[in-house]
Simulated scan of single mutants.
Amino acid sequence: MEEVEVELLKLIENNANLEVEKIAKLMGKSIDETRELIDKLEKKKVILGYSTLIDWAKVLNEEEVTAMVDVKVTPARDVGFDKVAERIYRFPEVKAVYLMSGTYDLSVSVKGKTMMEIGHFISEKLSALDSVLSTTTHFVLKKYKHDGIILQDADEGDKRIVVSP
């Protein structure tokens, strides 16, 4: 990969909202060169998409429940864990799947409206797959930092009520 491509990727990784004109200026390239470079990287599937990080805890009635599920599986012959991971990541509830070292084989990030909804997904869909041997579910109680972005400022302070005898 060319140095200029890596430079571009580092810029948009930290802020996908940068306008092409600003990227071109930061890189010392023309706007057309920059657009062509972005198009090239999108076609090569180096740039897979652009996303926005939203703190849903600050939006009324929109908060979702997130669970991290450790999954132990039996790998398929000739394809290892890939086929199992593909079956799992195709479920719309699944937001991410990672092959892991350690006690469990896959780490699966799942989102739902309620804990019960996630529980139904795990018991009726995920655990029902032939290759899944066991699961352990961890519910996210609070997010402090995500993708390098701090979600709660330290100066917001402790909002708990002081209880004393």
Rank of each mutant, 00 (worst) to 15 (best):
L8E: 02
E42P: 00
P75I: 06
T34E: 00
L126M: 06
H138M: 14
D70T: 01
L53P: 03
E7V: 07
V94Q: 07
M1V: 03
S30R: 03
L151W: 02
N14Q: 11
E42A: 03
N61H: 02
S109G: 10
R160G: 03
K111S: 14
W56Y: 12
E13P: 00
V20F: 01
V97R: 08
N17R: 11
S164N: 10
I118G: 03
K58G: 02
V46C: 03
T103S: 15
V97S: 09
S101Y: 11
G157H: 09
V162H: 04
E7I: 01
V97A: 07
N17S: 15
D82Y: 12
K29Y: 08
R87D: 15
M1R: 08
L9V: 04
L106W: 05
L11M: 09
K95M: 11
A67Y: 02
V84D: 09
T103F: 14
K29L: 13
I23K: 01
I38M: 05
P75H: 02
D55R: 12
T66F: 11
V6W: 03
V20C: 01
G112N: 13
K43I: 04
T103H: 10
V132P: 03
L60A: 05
G80A: 08
K25D: 15
K145C: 10
V97W: 08
R35M: 02
T136E: 12
D158V: 08
A24C: 04
K44V: 02
D158K: 06
M1L: 06
V46M: 02
G119P: 07
F81I: 13
A128T: 12
G112M: 11
E64R: 13
I47M: 06
E86Y: 12
A16E: 04
A24H: 04
D32S: 10
